[in-house]
Design a protein around this nucleic acid. Sequence first.
DNA 1: GTTCCGCATGAATCGATAG
DNA 2: ACTATCGATTCATGCGGAA
Lengths: 292, 292
Amino acid sequence: MKIYTDLYCGDSREELKKLPDNCVDLIFTSPPYADQRKNTYGGIHPNKYVEWFLPIAKELLRVLKPTGTFVLNIKERVVDGERSTYVMELILEMRKIGWLWTEEYIWHKKNSYPGKWPNRFRDSWERLIQFNKNKKFHMYQEAVMVPVGDWAKTRLKNLSETDKRRDESKVGSGFGKNISNWLDRDMAFPTNVLHLATECNNKNHSAAFPEGLPEWFIKLFTKQGDTVLDPFMGSGTTNFVAKRMKRNSIGIEIVKEYYDMVKSEIQPVELYLLEPKQNYEQPKPKRRIAVR
Amino acid sequence: MKIYTDLYCGDSREELKKLPDNCVDLIFTSPPYADQRKNTYGGIHPNKYVEWFLPIAKELLRVLKPTGTFVLNIKERVVDGERSTYVMELILEMRKIGWLWTEEYIWHKKNSYPGKWPNRFRDSWERLIQFNKNKKFHMYQEAVMVPVGDWAKTRLKNLSETDKRRDESKVGSGFGKNISNWLDRDMAFPTNVLHLATECNNKNHSAAFPEGLPEWFIKLFTKQGDTVLDPFMGSGTTNFVAKRMKRNSIGIEIVKEYYDMVKSEIQPVELYLLEPKQNYEQPKPKRRIAVR
DNA sequence: GTTCCGCATGAATCGATAG
DNA sequence: ACTATCGATTCATGCGGAA
């Protein structure tokens, strides 16, 4: 299987226009947060954030396949004691231009930044907002199943009669979950809360998100040979993970230095032609220098 | 210390008008979700939700003390494959009438049942949205400190120190000391993600929040003798917890049956006049029949 | 080899100080 | 008075040297 990684250096507002319609299966990205990282992205003011992002969202809607998914990793920052509202405003505006807001996953950052303030605790979660073009989209749920945890084992072992016939007496949601069906399984589906530590331990690696984050969504929303797009590539985490998982990928990065760095580290695609078929679960490549 | 529990039976839009200005330290509530629980609350349509809640939010702003906090437990439901936007719209509108959106806590529901839909996984989190009247508000952060994460290691390391402190604590509850100074070796401040199991051991208890949820926020935002308000009392969890923690409380419930049930189970206040001084951490009362 | 421990560090935020 | 900069705060994680 031939896998490509296409990199573009430039502003996503312009570079995305070079892509054809309906060519991408998954968009996974973490755009610059409002008023953050002034030195690299110019610092978008919270009040201007929606206005800045919306043209890009329009292009993303165009390049995504009808069965594809867009996952946006973002969190509003605190401004003057209050949480900014630009993320909520962005969701509302994106719906107006045709995006469906399907779901919001929570990334629980187990090792969040230290600190405690007179009026708030540490912020240890971020949003992973799922948008779709259509109500029907590809989702490979079995790919992200996890071993049944201790709590589930205990819970299922001690199933009472009440639990087994709980369905009928309940709210009547129409979703008949027969718990006893799960007794003989050792794998369970995850929830919409992801528990991942940030990768902050390596001197040369300070990625915005850990590799496990794009990996989970790439598993869930694509299969081998599909195409993943990150319009705010940064250090290229999404693209490196996509490549390791045998997915084509496209990366766009406005800062030439980061673009060059990623380009030089992505191996030539020709290697894959000679490689024997193998699973994508293999040792991670050496640590890279990250920029976000 | 005399503790009262005042219950009102009626619509919060009207009942709240009976309360004076600036009389409440904490509002903790879980309003009926849009189009949910039709049998109890009549089911507010998602499109009408903001319109319905806003007059109540105005009254809540009036009765809350300037140093008080409003914690709203809510989660938008899925309608036709999409997450509804009424929660986001509500936050935006509440800011327009004067509320500050200080923070959003996540309640991670640890033990929801396994299950999934073709397009989504189990929803295992809810929002706990913190609003304030002013940027300065009361927050008793030490009250919710938790043991440090790896307490197996810590315990071994600080064995002698633990003994030392135990002696000290026996000697006196001297209030002049900075508690966190001799506590922060073993205790850490929490984050804005709360891990609590749902209470699923009660047959008649379908979706109310666990007692730990109001307890955490009552600890964090009030002290003994303060006043807690729940304008959508339901089975009265907030009020029962408040009473156990020696906080006054006010509950409003539109359904007479629930109101009567809570009223009959809340003990007469006179008992407290005779009771010896004691900590509020005591065995929980017997399970009550819950209605939400 | 293992286990243990030191230590650097991360999409942070506030309040004080400086311009 | 308003904005910009800086220091203090303080936890989970995992690498790497030490025992």
